[in-house]
Design a protein around this nucleic acid. Structure first.
Length: 477
DNA sequence: TCTGGGGTCCTTAACCGT
DNA sequence: TCTGACGGTTAAGGACCC
């Protein structure tokens, strides 16, 4: 019924992990796990090599380490991923003005609107060309789904993974979907999946048979209607570029539950500041302040307050957050705190640029603050481990004077003598660095004292060498 | 060693006003 | 004036996504 399969869904394969493998030649073909490395971290992305051990995203990192003890565990480096993502999105926008990014590694493109394709053959050709261009520009593989609707295009790219392309011909969608699990449909997660399973519905075909009324009764109005339409392969949502943000929030999970009320208040104030920093950087102000508290038992509650008008004043947000906290019982301990602002209004801030810069600096400083997990700890003997008092996550009230330099695994560094490399692990006063760069052969490893003056953090190098013209970065030769 | 961080959207209930 | 049907807003929670 629907026209030609000219909606394209692009999905980068194991994006964060693939970027790290591209940046670090010695990791190619190896199990790479990107995610939180602390005691409560979870996996953001696992390379396909790591997936063979049963590691997958959203899994606690601790569990991943048990399944795959020899994997490389790295913290995410969003600035690098964003830069790579920008290259990819630029390719998409060259195809069509109608590009809807869903995240750093995923987007929809309306090929017809860009006059890039009008039929199956044209769409397939455009998709294959796109995959080649992305590989040339970034060195990474992407999967492409093509269909007459967003939902089907996404299902197609999922099925094409990794490094593939799948086009769903119009008219074939129902029979294609029928045997698939309901869980392949976007919007059907663990809860809905289990709900449906208990009603004896496990495939998309059974979903369609159940009928709209039944599904609405089981899962609610909006969900039921959407579910039924998806089961029939119906989806007429347009590709929309430029959707504006609806809320801004920041949250922190603590390595150890917080009990001290004074400390909790202090953390809420910090989060409020950070939240406003981001709010301002995005050129917004907001009316509703939200406090989020996750307790020791993982139960989560939110408290919110709506102001008379929008604000981007740190003091106002801090005070509102503090008021909201007073209404929350924290006995037993708190594992996470968050502060958010919603009800956003455009707010053209006078000195927006100065603020954005301040924010960027603050973020850069924070990035290096995170607790670094040593990874290749090997048989390092002797010397007592620094034994950090846990829970004193970051910037612990300036108690310790001679701050030891931290080298989180995965950080880019430059050594005066050996050149560019990355931190493979650190601990017991030492840091292990592998010297290699995106274009090079796998490099050698050397170990230094953490305070080696020749060693300094550096910016990530571009994945594909060609952009040598801009020496803006650390192009000291 | 259980379970991140940033979002979006939906549902339900209470409350207010028409 | 009382009651009801609605509709909008606010607050809280939950499911889901990457």
């Amino acid at each position: 019924m629907r026209a030609a399969p000219t909606i394209l869904h692009l999905d980068m394969d194991a994006f964060y992990a693939s970027v790290e493998q591209a940046a670090k030649p010695s990791l190619r073909g190896k199990a790479v796990i990107v995610g939180g490395l602390g005691p409560r971290g979870v996996v953001a992305t696992a390379s396909y090599e790591a997936r063979r051990f049963g590691v997958h995203s959203a899994m606690p990192t601790a569990q991943a380490r048990r399944l795959c003890p020899n994997g490389a565990y790295l913290i995410p480096r969003f600035t690098l991923y964003r830069a790579v993502s920008d290259l990819v999105m630029a390719r998409l926008r060259a195809l069509s003005p109608l590009v809807e990014p869903l995240s750093l590694d995923e987007a929809f493109v309306d090929l017809e609107a860009g006059e890039a394709a009008f039929d199956s053959a044209g769409a397939r050709a455009a998709g294959e060309r796109l995959r080649e261009e992305i590989r040339a520009a970034t060195g990474l593989s992407a999967s492409v789904g093509l269909a007459g609707s967003k939902m089907l295009a996404k299902v197609a790219s999922e099925a094409a993974k990794p490094d593939g392309l799948l086009l769903i011909e119009p008219g074939t969608e129902r029979e294609l979907l029928a045997p698939m699990s309901v869980r392949t449909l976007p919007g059907v997660g663990p809860a809905t999946g289990e709900h449906l399973r208990r009603a004896g519905i496990t495939t998309v075909g059974e979903l369609a048979e159940a009928g709209e009324d039944e599904l609405v009764r089981m899962t609610g109005r909006a969900h039921g209607v959407a579910l039924y339409r998806m089961a029939l392969g119906l989806d007429d949502r347009p590709v929309v570029a430029e959707r504006d943000a609806k809320s801004v929030s920041v949250e922190d999970t603590f390595d150890v539950d917080l009990h001290d009320r004074v400390r909790i208040r202090g953390e809420v104030q910090r989060l409020a500041e950070r939240c406003v920093g981001r709010l301002r950087a995005s050129g917004h102000s907001g009316r509703t302040i939200v406090l989020k508290v996750r307790r020791y038992d993982f139960s989560t509650l939110t408290r919110s307050e709506t102001l008379r008008g929008p604000t981007d004043d740190p003091a106002v947000v801090r005070e509102a957050a503090a008021r909201l906290l007073e209404g929350v019982d924290t006995t037993g301990g708190v594992r996470l705190l968050g502060v958010g602002v919603s009800g956003l209004a455009d707010y053209t801030q006078e000195d927006l640029f100065a603020q954005a810069e301040a924010e960027a600096r603050a973020e850069a400083a924070e990035g290096l603050d995170e607790g670094g997990g040593a990874e290749g700890a090997d048989g390092a003997a002797g010397e007592p481990v620094p034994a950090e008092p846990e829970g004193m996550a970051e910037s612990s009230a300036g108690a310790e004077p001679a701050q030891e330099r931290r080298w989180p695994a995965g950080t880019d560094v430059r050594h005066g003598e050996y050149g560019p490399g990355w931190v493979q692990g650190s601990g017991v006063g030492r840091v292990t660095v592998r010297f290699e760069r995106p274009g090079s052969a796998p490099g050698r490893v050397r170990t230094f004292r953490v305070d080696d003056p020749e060693l300094e953090p550096s910016d990530p190098l571009p994945l594909v060498g060609e952009h040598a013209e801009d020496d803006a970065g650390g192009g000291t030769d």
